[in-house]
Design a binder for these strands. Structure first.
Lengths: 130, 130
DNA sequence: CATGAAGTTGAAGTTTACTCTAAGGTGATA
DNA sequence: TATCACCTTAGAGTAAACTTCAACTTCATG
């Protein structure tokens, strides 16, 4: 059993964010102590692991909530969940290809400026000597 | 010379966004007709091209504005610009590696669910026959 | 030269994903 | 058993990046 602070330390998500995620339906059914304190299990941590993967690959909170909801509804939603992940995967692959393309252009520009800088510095040196 | 609508069509940015970018200092010095209408040149389009690359690789509006400002200040800012792009490039590479890692986990989960779905469907079929 | 589509501005509104605040209650420990 | 760090909630606040609105003005065309 982990306190919310423990989970925050383990995941890098703030305690605020953890409560917010719970409110939004991303992580439901977290146990409570008799006093009402959240007590996360290892299973909860694993669920948070998947959530982080989806989040970090650009899935919105709303879409993750949808996925989690389907999970709770049982095996008859397996097809929809597979479909959802498959589509997400496609979108991420496209996004990454696009990023790579744009990064290449940035790299090209960076090289261009690097050359220009060299020329500029050579010029400065010459001026100083004169 | 292109109207704002032309540029919107060419870049995929809305006319609203183009005006917003201008206000934020991302694209300055766009010519105007005597009546005050924006008239974009091919050079403006090229500048927008770089802006889109930076934007799409995750640079904030503020940081792009900073870069553009340095550009206007002349060659003595070349070093800072090179540094800025170099750092951005590093961040993007890290971000992409992270995304790839997380995507791998999503893919793993997807395969897991796909198998589970197959088993479930086989089960359903069996129940139907029974 | 009228008219309607497209442009202009400043300012307010929206969405997403947090993040913080206030006003408490809880629980380990000295 | 007091104390104090940590937890609870509802709700307000924030930041980024647009997006929409209102109230005009301009431009191309029949």
């Amino acid at each position: 059993m982990y306190s919310i602070q423990d989970v925050s330390n383990k995941t890098g998500l703030s305690t605020h964010t953890l409560r917010y995620y719970e409110k939004e339906g991303l992580i439901s059914g977290v146990e409570r102590s008799q006093g009402g304190f959240r007590q996360y299990t290892d299973e909860d941590l694993e669920r948070l692991g998947l959530i982080r993967c989806l989040k970090n690959t650009g899935m919105s909170i709303q879409e993750i909530a949808r996925f989690v909801q389907l999970t709770h509804e049982g095996d008859h939603t397996l097809e929809e969940r597979v479909e959802l992940l498959r589509e997400h995967r496609e979108r991420v692959l496209e996004r990454m290809a696009e990023m790579q393309e744009h990064l290449d252009k940035v790299t090209w520009k960076l090289n261009f400026f690097t050359e220009k800088l060299k020329a500029y510095q050579a010029e400065q040196k010459k001026d100083k000597q004169a």
